[in-house]
Design a protein around this nucleic acid. Structure first.
Length: 599
RNA sequence: CGGGAUGUAGCGCAGUGGUAGCGCGCCUGCUUUGGGAGCAGGAUGUCGUAGGUUCAAUCCCUAUCAUCCCGACCA
């Protein structure tokens, strides 16, 4: 390929729309163009990178015995209604693009493919003899994200590898799950990424065990907690830890104290000269179920701890049937405006007790007449604690469960683990924190979808039972940008050889010098014939421009057919190290073969 | 969905109640040819869109659309 014939435009300055380095570099390097929010065109260089990653993914997936297929992007609402996800994926914060066809049928653009694959499995898998089975596809996914951002990091249209496995036993599922775990590690290693596998929440996809693969980078959207011994790593959404020790309370007598201007725990602890661990914090949430019922949730938790909303949401899903629902549509901390909508009188914000009276909300038909009261495990052990007095500017001290306040019946773990906490597996280890970009997520789904959609097979005993499933996702386009986020310098991108759009770029300092061009043409042919993907910068530009552009796009090796030609040599420069060597023209191919495909 | 910001040439940005400019890029010519060259000449704009105020609006007002950022943050 010759650059003079390629549609390729680099930018000197950072586009104002980009915030993080990888996004700026991909735009400046002419790799991507934004078409609308969260939707990008992949230009020729980008497409080569994506293809490289795709081939690595295919190779590793095929090696596990998985089979590639291609499922439809246009999916009927009926399938999603069967699984129970149509509502949660299209209403409220739902992320599925949905549409209606000419005959008034509802359709959705596939954000994921559990429904489609389960429908196929239901039709095609009849016997345990066909199991286990693992199908995968590489395809564009559509998700109407609440807030697309950072270029390919969170797009509304993106490329994903997803696979789905089917089993006749939990043991078989776990075996494939662990094979996928290994395959993912192989993929990320081959792409040259620094990553970490972490315990994860399974979210709306559902199921039991799940693990995320995080590319470590400060621009990542996820917080990862881990221990230095390498034995524990988890997404903060899922992470567990030991809470700090409870400081015994000095308040032995129950009394009500005037505590003005202590709406926050920090101020209260300062005024009362007590530890935040002795305070019982009562946090109000507003949850809306898919049944349309809104419930006000009062979470009591130790003052020094915070609520993990993902864990809280999982608890709320467990009790959804009490409110005729199956799923949570929205969960939020109500702001003063929405409080007005349902409270009969102003709430004593900052001074709320765990037994906040249902009378505040009982008269409003728009919300459930009673608070749903939850208490976090950490708060159950509190003695002689401090909490709100249900009146502005007053707190009570020396309070106890079942004496002044009834202990809520629902005891849950909704505590957010944080850096510095002691680890559960080894209390001498403390949790460290890092930012990560989620590029892969593997799940043990179990029978959630097969049961909902009636995907069964006949087992050894002649019984008809639901298929046991696993699913495994990998963000191809996100991985590409994550690789950039992890590997660049002041001059531009530094691609790993395995996923670089080309291995080598030949820069001709002066295209009007026929000797330079002749050598460049010869090397272009020889290198490509040797399997080294090479591009020739034959544009009529000055050398400096070509060097800047070559650095910006990050091709791993640069050949310069310049002044060293006098000695029958060309200069070979390593993009990552900037190391330059003059190598005899005849030896260039062998030398680069050794660098690019080391034994 | 809430909050904030921005829409002016391909990109980055100025600017003004009297019909618009800078840098880079682009085109032509000459010179130059190892780290985004120099000189000379040139082209490019419904000033996001729609209303309103005004003798006059890119500028002021209203609405709308788009894009980006922050938040779904704890009593």
């Amino acid at each position: 390929m010759r650059l003079s014939q390629m549609l390729w435009v680099t930018l000197r300055e950072d586009p104002s729309e980009a915030e993080i380095k990888s996004h700026k570099l991909l735009l400046r390097g002419g790799y991507i163009r934004r078409i609308t929010s969260g939707v990008y065109a992949y230009m020729p260089l980008m497409w080569r990178v994506l293809q490289k990653i795709s081939w690595i993914v295919r190779a590793e997936m095929d090696a596990t015995g998985a089979q590639e297929c291609l499922l439809p992007q246009v999916q009927p609402a009926e399938l999603w209604q069967e699984s129970g996800r149509w509502e949660t994926y299209t209403k409220a914060e739902g992320i599925m693009f949905s549409l209606t066809d000419r005959s008034n049928h509802k359709l959705g653009l596939g954000p994921t493919h559990e429904e489609v694959i389960t429908a196929i499995a239901r039709d095609m898998i009849r016997s345990y003899r066909q199991l286990p089975l693992n199908l995968y596809q590489l395809q564009t996914k559509f998700r109407d994200e609440i807030r697309p951002r950072f270029g390919l990091m969170r797009g509304r249209e993106f490329i994903m590898k997803d696979s789905y496995s089917f089993h006749s036993s939990e043991a078989s599922l776990k075996e494939t799950y662990s094979v996928m775990d290994q395959a993912y590690c192989n993929i990320f290693n081959r792409c040259g990424l620094k990553f970490r596998a972490v315990d994860a929440d399974s979210g709306a996809i559902g199921g039991s065990g799940s693990q995320e693969f995080m590319v470590l980078a400060d621009a990542g959207e996820d917080d990862v907690l881990y221990t230095d011994d390498g034995k524990y790593a988890a997404n903060v959404e899922k992470a567990i830890s030991l809470a700090s020790d409870l400081v015994p309370s000095a308040f032995t007598e129950y009394q009500k104290l005037l505590t003005p201007n202590t709406e926050t725990i920090a101020k209260l602890a300062e005024v009362l000269k007590c530890s935040a661990t002795q305070i019982l914090k009562n946090v109000l949430y507003e949850v809306t179920y898919d049944s349309g019922i809104t419930v006000l949730v009062l979470v009591s938790i130790r003052g020094d701890q915070e609520v993990n909303e993902v864990k809280l949401q999982n608890e709320l899903v467990k009790v959804a049937e009490n409110y005729q629902g199956k799923a949570v549509l929205a969960l939020k901390v109500p702001d003063p405006e929405s409080q007005k909508a349902w409270s009969s009188q102003p709430l004593p914000l900052g001074y709320i007790p765990p037994n906040l009276d249902d009378a505040y909300i009982a008269k409003n038909p728009r919300v459930n007449s009673k608070f749903l009261r939850l208490v976090d495990q950490t708060a159950v052990d509190l003695k002689d604690f401090v909490t709100g007095a249900d009146v502005a500017n007053y707190h009570v001290v020396g309070a106890n469960w079942e004496k002044e306040f009834p202990l809520p019946k629902l005891v849950v773990d909704v505590r957010k683990a944080k850096a510095g906490d002691r680890s559960v597996h080894d209390p001498t280890q403390t949790l460290q924190t890092a930012r990560g970009i989620e590029v892969g997520h593997i799940f043990q789904l179990g029978t959630k979808y097969s049961k909902a959609m009636g995907a069964t097979y006949t087992n050894e005993n002649g019984e008809e039972v639901p298929l046991i499933m696993g699913c495994y996702g990998l963000g191809v386009s996100r991985l590409a940008q994550a690789a950039v986020e992890q590997s660049y310098d002041k001059d531009g991108i530094i691609w790993n050889v395995a996923i670089a759009p080309y291995h080598v770029i030949i820069c001709v300092p002066n295209v009007k010098d026929s000797a330079q061009m002749a050598v460049a043409e010869r090397l272009l042919t020889e290198l490509n014939q040797a399997g080294i993907e090479t591009i020739l910068d034959d544009r009529d530009e000055r050398a400096g421009v070509k060097f800047k552009d070559a650095d910006l796009v990050g091709i791993p090796f640069r050949i310069v057919t310049g002044r060293s030609l006098a000695e029958g040599k060309v200069e070979v420069v390593n993009r990552a190290t900037k190391e330059a060597n003059n190598i005899a023209i005849e030896q260039v191919v062998d030398s680069l073969l050794a660098e690019i495909f080391p034994k």
